[in-house]
C-alpha cells in the first residue's frame, strides 16, 4: 500500500517530528535514505555496549526510518496498538504475505522480514509509511507490497502492517 503526504503530515504529527519529513514532502522517493543516513533513534533493545553478548537492534519502531521497515508500505502496527511484530488487539494476522530483507545497522546483518498485515478493522490511520527497497510489481507476488495482503483472513479489511524478523539472510546470496 502506498503514497502520500500532507495526509501523513496531518495525521502523524508525532512521526513528523521524529523522522525526516522533508524527504516525504519532496515525493516519497527521497525518503529512501541509506542506512548510514538514518539517525539512531531511541534504543529499542539493549545496546551491545551495555550488554555484551546480547542481540542488538536500534531505532524507533514507530518511525518509518526503523531499519526493518525498509520495504513497508502502510500503517505501522506499532502506532495502532500492536508492535513491529504483533497485531493490535482484536485484529487478525494474515497468514499469507510477502517477504524481503533489511539491513540491521546495529549488527551489520541482513534479516529476512515477513510483512504480515493485520486485518479485520478499517485503516489504522496513524504512522503511514512508504518504503520500497526490493519491492516489485504484483506479478512478483512474493516480493510486492502493492497487494492487500489480507488474504486467508476472515476479513479483507486492511488495518496495519508488521515487519517480523523470521530469519537471518545468508551473506552473498
Amino acid at each position: 500500500m502506498k503514497f502520500l503526504d500532507r495526509m501523513m503530515e496531518q495525521r502523524s504529527r508525532e512521526l513528523a517530528q521524529r523522522s525526516s519529513r522533508r524527504g516525504l514532502l519532496k515525493g516519497l522517493g527521497s525518503l529512501l535514505v541509506g542506512s548510514a543516513a538514518i539517525p539512531l533513534l531511541p534504543v529499542a533493545r539493549a545496546s551491545a555496549a551495555g550488554n555484551p553478548g546480547q542481540p542488538v537492534e536500534e531505532g524507533d519502531p514507530s518511525s518509518c526510518d526503523y531499519w526493518r521497515y525498509c520495504a513497508i508500505d502502510g500503517f505501522l502496527c506499532d502506532c495502532c496498538g500492536g508492535s513491529a511484530n504483533t497485531c493490535p488487539p482484536g485484529t487478525e494476522m494474515s497468514p499469507v504475505t510477502w517477504i524481503g530483507t533489511c539491513l540491521n545497522p546495529a549488527d551489520g546483518r541482513n534479516y529476512v522480514i515477513s510483512y504480515n498485515d493485520c486485518c479485520g478493522k478499517s485503516s489504522c490511520g496513524a504512522c503511514l509509511c512508504q518504503r520500497d527497497e526490493g519491492d516489485r510489481p504484483p506479478y512478483r507476488p512474493d516480493a510486492t507490497n502493492d497487494i492487500n495482503w489480507c488474504l486467508g483472513t476472515s476479513s479483507a479489511a486492511y488495518h496495519c502492517s508488521t515487519a517480523i524478523v523470521v530469519g537471518v539472510a545468508l551473506e552473498d546470496s
Binding site: 502506498k2 503514497f3 515525493g27 516519497l28 522517493g29 527521497s30 525518503l31 529512501l32 525498509c70 520495504a71 508500505d73 512508504q130 518504503r131 520500497d132 527497497e133 526490493g134 519491492d135 502493492d146
Partner: peptide, 13 residues
C-alpha cells in the same frame, strides 16, 4: 524522477 534508486520506483516525480 531523477536519481532513481532501489525503492524510489513508487514515489512519483
Amino acid at each position: 524522477h531523477p536519481d532513481a534508486q532501489d525503492g524510489s520506483q513508487n514515489g512519483g516525480g
